[in-house]
Write a protein that binds this DNA or RNA. Sequence first.
DNA 1: GAGTTTGAAACT
DNA 2: CAGTTTCAAACTC
Length: 693
Amino acid sequence: MDKPQKNPTSQIGTSTPKSKFEDSPVFNYISNLSPIESVKSISSAQTFSSLSFTSPPPVFTSPHVNSHRESRFFRCHNSIDRTKPLEALDGSVSKEVVVPVIEDLNKEATLEDEEEETSVETSSELPQILKSDSQTPDRSDSPCNEDVTMEAPSDIPRGDSGSCSEDFKMGLQKMLDVREGNDTPDCGRLISDATELLVFRSPNDSEAFRCLVDKISSSERRFCAGVKSTKRPDITEDNPANGSRNENEPLALLPNEPVFNLHRGGMRRRCLDFEMPGKRKKDIADDQQSVCDNKAAGESSSRCVVPGIGLHLNAVALSSRDTNINVIHDYSISGEIQKSFSDSTTPIHSQETMQEISDQAENEPVEEVPKAFVFPELNPGSLKKKKRVSEQAGEDSCKRCNCKKSKCLKLYCECFAAGVYCIEPCSCIDCFNKPIHEDTVLATRKQIESRNPLAFAPKVIRSADSIMEAGDDASKTPASARHKRGCNCKKSNCLKKYCECYQGGVGCSINCRCEGCKNAFGRKDGSLLVIMESKQEEDQETYEKRTAKIQHNIDVSKEVEQNASSDQPLTPLPPYRHLVVHQPFLSKNRLPPTQFFLGTGSSSFRKPDSDLTQSHNEKRPCELVTEDKTETMPDILLNSPIANIKAISPNSKRVSPPQLGSSESGSNLGRRGNGRKLILRSIPAFPSLNPNQ
DNA sequence: GAGTTTGAAACT
DNA sequence: CAGTTTCAAACTC
């Protein structure tokens, strides 16, 4: 709350990019007037970083509780926008800042939107603030409410409204300013970034974001303005009038909603979007109507919503397999996620990328369910085909449960566990995991989370590079990804999908209590110990191999980066990274679960990666990452032997002697970190390999 | 499609 | 925290 004030001040009247703005005389002047420092640039930076790396994990909290939190990406957006304006209104400072005249229609329009948003969101999130301030343009409370809210576009600008004019104007102006200055520019960036990020999160997510992207492309402004989440229900069900708006605004809504819906709040519906690469959501909406009627209506956005947290195993597996896209999981992503998931520092896809993905969709059906809805129209009779395809592909990103007794309100239910509502394809009995029972679902989720905060977190944690590896030779390379909790297989030898590790396409780890592990993706004991023992041998052998792979990864990463201008963590991690990186999870100290999820894969791991791979930074093109790294990099890592090593011997194959394994790196990084001198080795390799590439 | 096996989730 | 039960997916036939 403290900082937010600063922004409004500095940002007043800024329709221009902050950098220019700050430089401008006007800006200076304003800055002088205001006691408050302009922090905007900083804030934005923080925002990103926070978004990408540190934001608290939506995954962990219940949708409701953390709804605002869930979208890290938006979170900044929200915090800045909302809080600032609100607070700004209060202080005298704000007055100085405020520009008396409302100028253009755009602003007006924007204002209107914002009004709605503000009222809506604020009411939910910052009710006190708004209400406490008598001057606040809050539509519900302020005298001018009606005018503003309903007729805002025309009335407000004129200032005819009268009674509230002065204060009200200020308030509005500020809001506008905020919007103009902060939101718009930021939004633009954020949007682009976020979009990309979100998209990449998971195959599934990407689809969801298409909607967002489309809208964004149409108008960023709307997006910014559109941050309205809570409204939808109203719009949908209650206000036919809004219905029209619905069509227009769904996108606008997306920003926020998606954000939190994406994760888990979004229990709304999963894969829905994925399928619609080419299709309009609208169409889909129609199709799905039957399924999610209650909410669906409001859910145009919901459809866009990415599956929440979940999609863990499947998502991961899919991502690795399906997506050529560089998907980084928080996973979730989200989940996701989540996507998570999820939420947002996920790798990004540009629209083009998305398009590609969508194109791929035909070839690689990602989600059955949505397809069921979507595709049939596109490709009559495609459902079976797709399903078949998906099966062949071994994917089942879209969950379909068959619950008989759990009412789909327990983790037994894949849908529920994945953070999505059950839909038609499900064969569940007495299902409560539907929009109709949202309250119940949320309550249950909350309860479960209270018991186990990670319950809805992706089960498999994977880093970007891991994915790539998986594609290449997952079997050979120890999976970077690991099951968060490890399996407990007794009879399946971790060779069947009974094993969550196997199912997730990851190797077993120390965390596993499995017996007779033969996990094709990596045995519990084998990889580590054996590797450690035969480290040298392996090094030589694998060095070349990995080097090649690294090279490949770099190329890929480069492409990815290009696609994702924002640099999201998308870039596949260097091959060895994951080894070290993942461990952090295991060692709870390292990465808060939150990051975990938020960062869908890459993001979540970023820190560690950065730490571990500081050297990588050199090679890697990701500047942004570097920044983040700096901020987020744990002291331990910074001071860790690895860091030293790197500095010391850039090229040396084996910089770190036994030390790595035994000392800090070992404890911090985890088992793998220990054994793997390889990691160090690989690090040096990067820089030299492709300086330009 | 029915029945069995399996291991996670939930419960005690 | 360990043991047991419940549950639904995965698997087999």
